[in-house]
Design a protein around this nucleic acid. Structure first.
Lengths: 205, 205
DNA sequence: CATGCGATTGACTCGTCAGTCAACCGCGAG
DNA sequence: CTCGCGGTTGACTGACGAGTCAATCGCATG
């Protein structure tokens, strides 16, 4: 019975996952506002009402997708922060994580960037504090590097963090909307490029 | 009669402008999707139907606002392109124009960035080619600088353009959502900062 | 086999707007 | 003064889609 319960719980969790995965595909294809809850249900091969069994609202589905992934990003940055690495290496690891997230699941990253991160008027507004945590952590890295003389002291860490994150996000956006060429090689080059460029700009002349 | 007609035409143009200006305020305050056409009419002090006399649809109002401003940006970049200036100065002028646009009319820039430029799934999709023109012009500047040795040749101009534009847009976004401090001094510093950083990163070591 | 409970279904409700349209206004021309 | 036309009005319609809910299913348990 314990295992039976566990089995049932597992099945329920699977259905939930199934809905979330379908939602990623639908949001990526049609955009959050343009898609209907019935599209998600259809894509998941599930009845309309079931979406509301697992989620309070359409919004909650997107919230869940965003938070799941963003929390992983924050964990990665925090873990990095604790380590004894050069700022350049920390920033490289962050860029690498974001780019690899895109490589691994482009649809999910498209949804997160297009519908949340870059949509600060609708969803971004709600999640702004969460998004900001990432900016702040990056700013901390810059600040520490300024303290030990690796980076020039005459740039506000906040600005530097925004420029760094903005550059990466714009490159991702370029891939998402096929303005920039994609491919494993491009991904690797762009990690290096963004970090190179920004760090060179931040190091003392 | 000629002047009478001109007067009437002027009055009509004024009403149109009045609606556009009201739309900027409403879009900036509530967001395009969250606002109703009746909100625009009310803000403009005009009847609901009049909006549809001057514009085919709610979308066309936003399209108009975006194109009006974006075309000015493109003109500025093209004019700059023709001049005999260092790449760094050209990029500085572009950054300055964008930042000053924000200083001059923050609400309009908020609408353009949040609802069009960063909303590539809805409006951005339609205007992608237009937005891309700006990226391409910036990339041209980088390419020319690489040809004459001012910039390192090992960075794709497209990447550099995206990083440059992305950094600026993210800083604007920071101001828009009050993540970064605002003020004339900040604006001046950030123009210099973004250009400094990116150019330093692009120049040969 | 009977019971019960959570998972699942999908038809329906209910509010919301974008866009339409027929009527009205005011001004210049004849 | 009257005609006509473009500008102006706002009540109305039609579609749409999020969220509800009562009914059904199926599985574990006793």
């Amino acid at each position: 019975m314990a295992s039976a319960r566990a089995g049932a719980a597992q099945a329920a969790a699977d259905k939930r996952r199934q809905i979330l995965d379908a939602a990623v595909r639908v949001f990526a294809r049609q955009g959050f506002n343009q898609c209907r809850v019935s599209d998600i249900a259809a894509e998941a091969g599930v009845a309309y009402g079931l979406v509301y069994h697992y989620f309070r609202s359409k919004d909650e589905v997107l919230d869940t997708l965003f938070l799941e992934r963003w929390n992983v990003l924050l964990e990665v940055i925090r873990e990095l922060d604790g380590r004894d690495l050069a700022a350049r290496e920390k920033l490289h690891a962050i860029a690498a994580f974001i780019v690899d997230s895109y490589r691994h699941d482009p649809e999910l990253m498209k949804v997160i960037i297009v519908e949340v991160t870059r949509a600060a008027n609708s969803f971004g507004r709600t999640h702004l504090p969460k998004i900001r945590e990432a900016y702040d952590l990056i700013a901390d890295i810059v600040e520490a590097a300024q303290a030990d003389g690796t980076f020039r002291p005459d740039v506000t860490p906040d600005f530097a963090a925004m420029a760094f994150y903005g550059a990466i996000e714009q490159v991702l956006t370029g891939w998402i909307f096929e303005v920039l060429p994609r491919g494993d090689e491009e991904y690797e080059r762009s990690k290096a490029f963004v970090v190179e460029t920004i760090c060179s700009g931040l190091e003392p002349r």
